[in-house]
Design a protein around this nucleic acid. Sequence first.
DNA 1: GCATCATTACTCGGATAAGAAATGTCCGAGTCGCGCAGG
DNA 2: CCTGCGCGACTCGGACATTTCTTATCCGAGTAATGATGC
Lengths: 155, 155
Amino acid sequence: MRLGKGVEWAVHTLLNLNMAESGALGTPQLARAHDLPPAYLNKQLQLLVKAGLLVSSVGPHGGFSLARPVEEITLLDVVLAIEGDEPMFRCEEIRCRGTIGELSPRPTGPCQVKSAMRRAERAWHEALAGQKLADIQAELDEEPAVRRIVRSALD
Amino acid sequence: MRLGKGVEWAVHTLLNLNMAESGALGTPQLARAHDLPPAYLNKQLQLLVKAGLLVSSVGPHGGFSLARPVEEITLLDVVLAIEGDEPMFRCEEIRCRGTIGELSPRPTGPCQVKSAMRRAERAWHEALAGQKLADIQAELDEEPAVRRIVRSALD
DNA sequence: GCATCATTACTCGGATAAGAAATGTCCGAGTCGCGCAGG
DNA sequence: CCTGCGCGACTCGGACATTTCTTATCCGAGTAATGATGC
């Protein structure tokens, strides 16, 4: 049960795109910014495009740019874009199989174990949805040099 | 980012052990109860033993039994026992690498992205810790036949 | 000088490998219960 | 009949395959800028 490293890459890259002022940044620059494998980073960014967080443009001077301001992007958006929206607890309904499952009448209502795990998962989602990228950006800005540094490294 | 199926197996098996009244149940019976691969289920149960949720006894009439009542076992205990206690978001400190990392002075304080993800993870843990196995057992008991069925399938 | 066009370099995007982790299987060490022999 | 002992069967526990997923890489299709060319 671990998140792919694409999540970390995506968040930092989105923040970098927010701080940079050039219209669009290509995969090579974004990868060099944090020494990431360019082709694989590109794969993750494509997921962000598919999820509607980024827009991409091809050709020279092409690249990726934010589809909407960081005030409207939550950590949940990023996690779901990268990891997919399948629930992390997969209920295979084992309660309906084996000697117990065969003896039981067809159970009424959903599996209680599944429901309990879903509640916890919902708490996680809500905690993620409650944190926008703008909030993290604000924390970053408490160190005053970051924006300037990022721009000089990217533009 | 998905939990192993061992989590589902563990929760149902712990509940079965709670409902059964025989002193200890072996892997074969517990596996037949839900038609699970016995050897792999055994692997998961060993994790529960290592975490202190189960006690095991060898020899004939041996097997697994609860180490403490279900009122004192939370879903968090089970998840941590099966999945391990490493955090699901692995911060690799990419902010300190690449052109941005080299330009920046050594950053003060922890990574804000990591902190945000940790907050969400804590919410998940708290939601898991707030649900005891006894609570799920109580929901199961609303269908009155379950305990009798489980006993007749296991004992 | 200006518009048109072919070229070119650069981009994304998806198809293709390598590595790691989860899943599944097998066999050995140890132990408890049971049957048997002896007193 | 009672006690002690050897045997056997059953258990857990860890070492060994297989499948799935994550991670990483490569190459092609498409496009926009650019420079040359003709008017």
